[in-house]
Design a protein around this nucleic acid. Sequence first.
DNA 1: TAAAAATTTTAGATTTGACTAAAAAAAATT
DNA 2: AATTTTTTTTAGTCAAATCTAAAATTTTTA
Lengths: 219, 219
Amino acid sequence: MNFTSSEENYIKAIYHLQHSSALVTTNELAAQLKTKAASVTDMLKKLKNKDLLLYEKYQGFQLSSKGKKVALGIIRKHRLWEYFLVNNLQFGWDEVHEIAEDLEHINSKLLIEKLDAYLSFPKFDPHGDPIPDVNGKMEPTKQINLIDLENNQAAEVSAVGSQSSELLELLSHKNIGIGTRLHIVKKFSFDHSIEIKIADSAPFSISQQLAQSLFVKPL
Amino acid sequence: MNFTSSEENYIKAIYHLQHSSALVTTNELAAQLKTKAASVTDMLKKLKNKDLLLYEKYQGFQLSSKGKKVALGIIRKHRLWEYFLVNNLQFGWDEVHEIAEDLEHINSKLLIEKLDAYLSFPKFDPHGDPIPDVNGKMEPTKQINLIDLENNQAAEVSAVGSQSSELLELLSHKNIGIGTRLHIVKKFSFDHSIEIKIADSAPFSISQQLAQSLFVKPL
DNA sequence: TAAAAATTTTAGATTTGACTAAAAAAAATT
DNA sequence: AATTTTTTTTAGTCAAATCTAAAATTTTTA
């Protein structure tokens, strides 16, 4: 089975939305894809006909197991290309998302297998997200949100919550990346800001919003 | 300026057809693209409106200088990706054409510049065709057709006439590739077949058709 | 050079994915 | 529980790229 780029983009977006809530709604998906609800409804019918989607009118929807498999295949391609762009072509981690959005739609099993081997079967992409293997399996990351750490706990940044250039710009300004080790100096309940310290540099504070976009492994 | 994949495929096909005859015809192009003459006419109008094509109804057509620049950009992308697929990902030279047909439509200047640098600015693709540089300039190849060699001349294979899998299958069966050194044992006028010898192996003969698809540099 | 053949273009239809506006259904509110 | 608001779907358009069939033009040939 091959799918159009548009179908693939819908499948991928539904997959990501399913993580927060099992059933996805038409408006949610329209917002995510920056399109209109009517366009979404059209595509839902198409995906249902191809057995990629469990969908009843007005009732919300979710991917079928076939749909999930397809989603994992697209995510695998996206993350492998991101890894290649950053590690081989020397792109910054904040520059690769859009290019990977295009590359992920290239359809060649052999290409992806060979790319995977060329990169030595990486397990995580440059943003810390796990890369599904050829069977769709990926490393369980058991990452926790930085906001859930306690005062004085140490941790290593292992993933970021989104690829938005706004987030990545802020992180690079603050010198925070995947692998950065930090510890919590103090959490403030007034505005939920968190003061953190990286290595020997001066402590500084980050907003609740930023903390929620950072995933860490406690040390 | 960005173009659709379809527009780019037309531009590229016209560029290649222009090499044999300055003016290209509707039917020629339709045959090349495996589409219908009516579809070609539609696209010709579109390309003319974008100043990519010099075209008057019923009179044949050719790329404008802007059109040629676009064509060279696409060919550059195609050949760089082919080089990457063969030299880095370990594809056979007969497996890469179709994948490169897709990859060539990815639009990112930065991606291609970084890929070019990663590959150390290669001058020829795996089929021996020159890769245009960022300004569209490419190595003049002054290759001659194998069929134009004389008895006893030695030469090195430097390019093949097409990427058809049929041709590449035959060449790999006969152990002929880019860089293969051979010499002409005898040319037969009856069927224009040519007996050649590679290194110390036994001489064997190749058909006129095959010889015409092989380009060489005399040694 | 006039008729026949081939080529090219136009006209009108189809498919895919998007849109707007209106209708239908579900959810929220009084 | 009835009304209002929000969400979702349907109906009808539109643009891009394709196609078939028919018309227009050019080329070939008798």
